[in-house]
Design a protein around this nucleic acid. Sequence first.
DNA 1: GGCTAAGCGAGACGGTACGTCCCGTCTTTGC
DNA 2: GCAAAGACGGGACGTACCGTCTCGCTTAGCC
Lengths: 193, 193, 193, 193
Amino acid sequence: MKTNDDSGEQPRKRGRPRSEASRRAVLDTALDLVQECGGGGITIEAIARKAGVGKQTIYKWWGGTSGIFLEILRENASRGIDDLSAEHDLGSFLASTFQSLHPPVRLILKALMAEAVLDSTLREKFVNEFIMQRRAALSRVLRRAPGLIIKDEALVIDLVFGFMWYRLLLDLGPLDTAEGKRLAAELLGQGSR
Amino acid sequence: MKTNDDSGEQPRKRGRPRSEASRRAVLDTALDLVQECGGGGITIEAIARKAGVGKQTIYKWWGGTSGIFLEILRENASRGIDDLSAEHDLGSFLASTFQSLHPPVRLILKALMAEAVLDSTLREKFVNEFIMQRRAALSRVLRRAPGLIIKDEALVIDLVFGFMWYRLLLDLGPLDTAEGKRLAAELLGQGSR
Amino acid sequence: MKTNDDSGEQPRKRGRPRSEASRRAVLDTALDLVQECGGGGITIEAIARKAGVGKQTIYKWWGGTSGIFLEILRENASRGIDDLSAEHDLGSFLASTFQSLHPPVRLILKALMAEAVLDSTLREKFVNEFIMQRRAALSRVLRRAPGLIIKDEALVIDLVFGFMWYRLLLDLGPLDTAEGKRLAAELLGQGSR
Amino acid sequence: MKTNDDSGEQPRKRGRPRSEASRRAVLDTALDLVQECGGGGITIEAIARKAGVGKQTIYKWWGGTSGIFLEILRENASRGIDDLSAEHDLGSFLASTFQSLHPPVRLILKALMAEAVLDSTLREKFVNEFIMQRRAALSRVLRRAPGLIIKDEALVIDLVFGFMWYRLLLDLGPLDTAEGKRLAAELLGQGSR
DNA sequence: GGCTAAGCGAGACGGTACGTCCCGTCTTTGC
DNA sequence: GCAAAGACGGGACGTACCGTCTCGCTTAGCC
């Protein structure tokens, strides 16, 4: 419904308005590059060059690669926001959560995590803007889930997302619909055995 | 008994032998630096400078910062190796595992993970040389653990280590003896409530 | 009587007239900055910022720093124009010429010369608008000077202004009333010895 | 006769020796570029790129374009050093001085002067390392010159070099053998008229 | 004991990216 | 229509590390 983050009814700022074209070019190019070069090889210079954008524009609006990644995630989240809020049952929630980790999203998450681990400022931002929302969403689901074999909700959240990140970061196993269902089943005491 | 890693009884190689002093200086300096600069600011140049060592020496023997980190972990592990193999009960295992994450070790693990996430070659090495050993150790403990509420062992391992890394990487909560005991209790169906 | 340079009696152009306040602000700020930063540190952006003026305004009316400098010189010259045209005797002419090189004027001249040397377009403009007028003025004086020891007038002009610029640009010696008198005396064969 | 500036009999420094090839490439490239782009368009980046040299190498050994220009002049001077020291008569001295101002040398001198005028540190260096040597050389010649119409030697030096720089910087007239002879003749009271 | 062979500190080197500054242009709003 | 505000693509700045490459010196085993 909203056009712009900071839009109210104030009378439009002076000066040349921010270029939506450049914004798009940067986000798209970053996504492209992260798929080609795999997170580590990403560079402000490379993005600027490929996107046909000045470096300053990037530094000004995003401050660095992490800012771009966060915005990509934000965009990605806002597209699928209805799904998650409507989910009620744990199995479906985990299934769709894991399924939403498309290859490009995985790369973004990995790159973001790699930076956040080394930079406490970014870590805080990342936790507040992304991690906590996911925890809250899961929390809502858990509150309606019957028969969890572990009663401590916070612990369950840590276990579930820990599981996800552990597998994601180290490529230790599948993360898909089936795995989501399976994890949910185990946590609900409905393990196959 | 010899210091040389790959020494057997072959007749001692020709030429000047590797300097143990340099080896120590590099490892110690790296540990120092990672505590001062927090992982991100670590640099081959900085280590070489502070350790009074040629850059070439580092590239030759360790190949980069990750090699140094891995060796530090290896040394650290070999000191406390008896403890872990002797542990039988899950609570003690998790307690001592979490407790072994002293601040410097945490920084090393974080720095290593940050690199491994972006570099699949390193990731593979890291998983094979470190992650898998820990999984194996936990596996041994689990096999003797009675009454796990989740039967799938591999899943439990993912959950436990996922929990640990998730909290470690994002500073999301305590990781100490008490938390280890608590997690074990929950997994064994002995949750406080 | 109007401030506009190129106004005659044509019927006042349409639209908002050029802002005299901005013009003054730019010229004054440029003079301030050249005294603070010494020529090299001068920037369109800095002038615009400090003068509270849009960059576009500067580009439109002056085209760059050199245009501003030239206008400052023009203003400066128009204030003292009577003096020079009234001078008849070489000693007085040189004395007042050298004396007119106040510190701010020196900086402007240096900055202008530094640009002109590297930019042939500017050089031409500078020579036509400034250098040639000074040569002409000196020429008028010389024609009335008795007993010059060098007969070739053009050569004398080159020597005199060469002397001035050489000392000015490289800070190689005083340039004041006394030095003007002294130079004149030597050229007139009245050297102290 | 000498191989190296700072060579004595000290036992050769440790570490990789400075690359003569890079030194040459930088000097030659700078000379090329100054002829193509004309002084103002010269850039450390452009030199580094065209010379196939790292920027740091330039910053380390020369500190900037001015350092390069000074070294080019030094090399140029050392090639023709015998000529000037052997000259005894003013006419020949001025003739060969002016004649030595080949187009590339002119560009170097202009570029150097343009920088020196705006940067007092460089100005001092330029004066000490270049200007003063030329003044000293002229001084030696003047001391043997009979019948100078201006007795004050320092003044003559200022006049002569002022003449040269004035014409050089502003392209105000020829600077060649004939002009040197002519100037000398006038200063010696042998003007054509 | 002299020879050969590493290992090592030092440090120069060609590169690449950093984050900043300014250029000159363009596009708004507001007077 | 002029001007301030300010976003923009571009390009150079000077710095920091990268990983490689000589150097001279040291320290060993081997003939």
